[in-house]
Design a protein around this nucleic acid. Structure first.
Lengths: 126, 126
DNA sequence: CCTTGTTTTTAGAATTATTCTAATTATAAT
DNA sequence: ATTATAATTAGAATAATTCTAAAAACAAGG
């Protein structure tokens, strides 16, 4: 793995931040001022292919990148805030229903985050 | 609901096709030759807000729109083919783990579709 | 069925996100 | 060193989506 690839992998893997390609680019640029966007996109793509990171497609914002360690996501329906949560692994359950062959799954649970819930209760939001 | 909005909703709601905004636009254009892309984007957005359809963000392709009736998705890891599947509802399970407050969830199960599996077995693909 | 106010649609520009191309540079393998 | 392979760069190109301001459609009240 090249220097850039390694740092990009580390940035994604050691962060809770669910960064976009742009944010990763800006972060990497702090240490490697010469790096260019395409490099970051290229590396993110190959890291995904190799299964070292994963891409999250989130409605209404650019793709985000995430570590692999098994976990699920909570998404606020109203403000889009994204956070990690780990539910019990349900691969077994799903395989019982569809048969073998699951590679992995992606579970997003939509809710109202504490901030938005509060606002809603105060009647600030519909 | 306006004429356009209604047709757009029907197109999405009565189809298994998981169409992109572009595809919906082309489809609608067959009956309504004057309609314009922005109208379709606008209506898709407001239909989503009203909870009448849902947007699916799929890695590597533009957003797709889907009916609301509860169901999950199978996605081929290799070719991206998307199909519907209905697993048992697991809202109860999830609430047991995180408490009340789930609005809905989005589950994508990644696997190898029959075509890709066959290719892989024949050694055509890595 | 006119007038007025609100919403929707339109055309096209603008923005954003991402990929592509071809040249250059770095890395690894003989 | 020499050559082959892969990564990086700059910048153009493409794709997807949103924005803007004006025009058209619609809805409600008189």
């Amino acid at each position: 793995m090249t220097r850039y690839a390694k740092r990009i992998w580390e940035l994604v893997d050691h962060s809770e931040a669910h960064m976009t390609a742009e944010q990763i680019f800006l972060e990497l640029k702090k240490e490697e001022p010469k790096v260019v966007q395409a490099t970051v996109y290229n590396n993110l793509n190959t890291l995904c292919q190799k299964g070292l990171i994963r891409k999250l497609s989130i409605e209404g914002s650019p793709d985000r990148y995430d570590k692999i360690r098994r976990h699920d996501h909570l998404v606020c329906k109203r403000c889009g805030a994204l956070s990690d949560i780990t539910f019990e692994d349900m691969t077994g359950d799903l395989e019982r229903q569809m048969g073998e062959g699951i590679l992995f799954y992606d579970l997003k649970v939509f809710y109202l985050c504490p901030k938005c819930r509060e606002k809603k209760e105060k009647g600030v939001l519909p």
